[in-house]
Amino acid sequence: MLLVLETLGPTERAVFVLREVFEVGYDEIAATVQKSPSAVRQIAHRARAHVAARRPRGPVSAAEARRALEAFQRAVDLGDVQGLLDILAPDVVLLGDGGGIKQAVLRPVVGADKVARLLASRKVEVAALSLHPAEVNGWPALIVRFDGELDTVLTVRVDDGLVTGLYAVRNPEKLAHMRQATALRR
């Protein structure tokens, strides 16, 4: 849901959350966002349609998620833009979380072409970078290590065999638990 909400504009997101989550009336929302009640109804309708369109159609099998993650990992490892374009959904969304501490994308990156170019453009010493498949909070993920140290957890959303969402967590405060958990497995 976070991935979907991030794709809404600020007004759409506010209207959607106030109406759908908190059941605030249209008149009160209109006063809050400084729009007419009829405009707020239209914004709410568009936001609901957008959110409904982005919901997964059904559960993804573990095998399907694994295949998509492996293809994604292979394309990232090789810097293969075409391989990334083949596995990314046309409307894929990449979100980053550096927590103001680590560099990350500041705004959602939307679209297969933009996401593929961004991922393929990362010029890093390949020997220093390693990607390991994992499951994080029930989602397929890649654990990214740089010089052996945990750098990023990249969770991947898969729908219909394509990667539709990527959430790159680089915030050290959020990764502290992962560092402890991964250290226990050694």
Score class of each variant (00 low, 15 high):
Ala52Trp: 03
Leu69Pro: 05
Gln42Ser: 11
Asp159Arg: 07
Val40Asp: 04
Phe16Ile: 10
Ala116Met: 09
Arg122Phe: 02
Val17Ile: 15
Leu129Ile: 09
Ser61Tyr: 06
Ala68Arg: 01
Phe146Leu: 15
Ala89Cys: 07
Phe72Ile: 00
Asn137His: 13
Ala39Met: 09
Gly161Cys: 08
Gly58Glu: 07
Arg170Asn: 06
His132Ala: 12
Pro133Ser: 12
Asn171Glu: 04
Arg107Glu: 14
Pro56Ser: 07
Ser38Thr: 14
Leu129Pro: 05
Glu135Ser: 10
Val109Asp: 06
Leu8Ala: 11
Glu173Asn: 13
Val105Ser: 05
Arg57His: 11
Gly111Lys: 03
Lys174Gly: 11
Ala141Glu: 02
Thr7Met: 06
Leu3Phe: 04
Asp151Gln: 10
Val124His: 12
Arg66Asp: 14
Ala65Phe: 08
Val169Asp: 00
Glu23Ala: 15
Gly165Glu: 10
Pro56His: 07
Ala47Ser: 14
Ala53Tyr: 02
Leu162Thr: 13
Arg67Tyr: 08
Arg185Trp: 02
Ala112Met: 04
Leu2Val: 12
Pro133Thr: 07
Leu119Ala: 11
Lys174His: 08
Val24Pro: 02
Val158Ile: 13
Val156Cys: 04
Asp27Val: 15
Gly9Trp: 01
Ala53Gln: 10
Thr32Met: 13
Val4Met: 06
Leu84Asp: 05
Val124Trp: 09
Ala65Ser: 13
Ala116Tyr: 00
Leu166Ile: 00
Ser61Lys: 02
Phe16Tyr: 15
Leu184Cys: 00
Glu12Cys: 08
Arg67Met: 08
Val92Lys: 02
Val126Arg: 15
Leu150Trp: 06
Arg46Phe: 09
Arg170Glu: 02
Ala71Lys: 03
Arg55Val: 09
Phe22Gly: 05
Gly9Thr: 13
Lys35Met: 14
Val169Pro: 05
Glu149Asp: 14
Asp147Lys: 14
Asp97Val: 03
Lys35His: 14
Glu23Thr: 14
Thr152His: 00
Ala120Thr: 11
Val4Phe: 00
Ser130Asp: 15
Gly99Thr: 01
Ser61Glu: 08
Gln34Glu: 15
Leu18His: 15
Arg13Tyr: 04
Val24Arg: 14
Leu142Ala: 06
Glu125Gly: 05
His177Ile: 07
Lys102Gly: 01
Val115Ser: 01
Ala62Tyr: 05
Pro56Trp: 01
Ala128Pro: 09
Leu2Met: 09
Ala68Tyr: 04
Pro140Cys: 09
Arg145Gly: 05
Gly83Leu: 00
Gly96Val: 08
Gly138Ala: 06
Ile43Ala: 04
Glu64Lys: 01
Arg46Pro: 08
Val40Ala: 09
Gln82Lys: 10
Ala65Met: 04
Arg67Thr: 13
Ala39Tyr: 00
Val156Arg: 02
Gln180Glu: 10
Val4Glu: 07
Val109Trp: 04
Gln34His: 13
Arg54His: 11
Gln73Thr: 08
Val24Met: 13
Thr164Ala: 00
Ala141Leu: 01
Val93Met: 03
Ser38Cys: 04
Val93Leu: 01
Leu88Tyr: 09
Gln103Ile: 10
Ala30Lys: 06
Ala75Ile: 07
Leu162Cys: 09
Asp113His: 09
Glu149Tyr: 03
Arg55Met: 14
His45Ile: 00
Leu84Tyr: 03
Leu5Met: 12
Pro37Gly: 08
Gln103Thr: 12
Ala71Tyr: 03
Ala104Cys: 07
Ala52Arg: 12
Gly100Asn: 05
Gly58Gln: 07
His177Cys: 02
Leu154Thr: 00
Ala128Val: 05
